[in-house]
């Protein structure tokens, strides 16, 4: 067992975990933040995407101990004081989700995408979201959601 300490959604958290514990398992099992999902076992689907020190990462590709001291944001921490993040609101407004399982990872990736490409073209959005699989929407409305949010986010 190793003690890990980090900031998650603005709160200091600390727990004893086995050294091989993945960050996603730490988030889901230790912190009970179940908005971050697990959709695969080969780091392909992006359902587990969170922000670590401001950048989106697949939390199944990282050990909890590697996030020691980091500032982690999960989908639960994205809305500020009860106000939806523009990306969250845009997914709802543009029907960018159906079953919702890919959605937290998709939104976390999309927020990072817009940070790096403030005014993304459809092509940029599609290629940037290549690491997030959605089986429900056919991506059409996800692309629309991200585009609309990027405009609101002041791109």
């Amino acid at each position: 067992m190793t003690t890990v300490t980090m900031t998650v959604n603005g709160k200091n958290v600390s727990a004893d975990v086995a050294p091989n514990t993945l960050l996603v398992d730490f988030i889901r099992n230790n912190l009970r933040l179940t908005g971050t999902h697990v959709g695969c076992d080969t780091s392909q689907c992006g359902a587990c995407t969170v922000h670590v020190d401001g950048d989106s990462i697949k939390s199944c590709t990282m050990l909890a101990v590697q996030a020691e001291g980091a500032d982690v944001t999960t989908i639960e921490g994205l809305a500020a004081n009860g106000d939806l993040h523009p990306m969250q609101a845009s997914f709802k407004e543009n029907h960018g989700l159906q079953c919702g399982f890919c959605t937290p990872g998709m939104i976390m990736s999309a927020v990072d995408l817009v940070k790096r490409h403030p005014n993304p073209s459809e092509e940029t959005i599609r290629s940037e979201l290549e690491g997030n699989i959605c089986r429900c929407t056919g991506y059409h409305n996800i692309v629309k959601s991200v585009k609309a949010a990027s405009e609101k986010m002041g791109g």
């Binding site: 971050t36 989908i75 994205l78 969250q88 997914f91 709802k92 937290p104």
Partner: peptide, 13 residues
């Protein structure tokens, strides 16, 4: 707009 979306986009599904 869908009623169920609120919980899904906030990680509360």
């Amino acid at each position: 707009r869908r009623k169920e979306d609120q919980r899904f986009i906030t990680g509360n599904g």
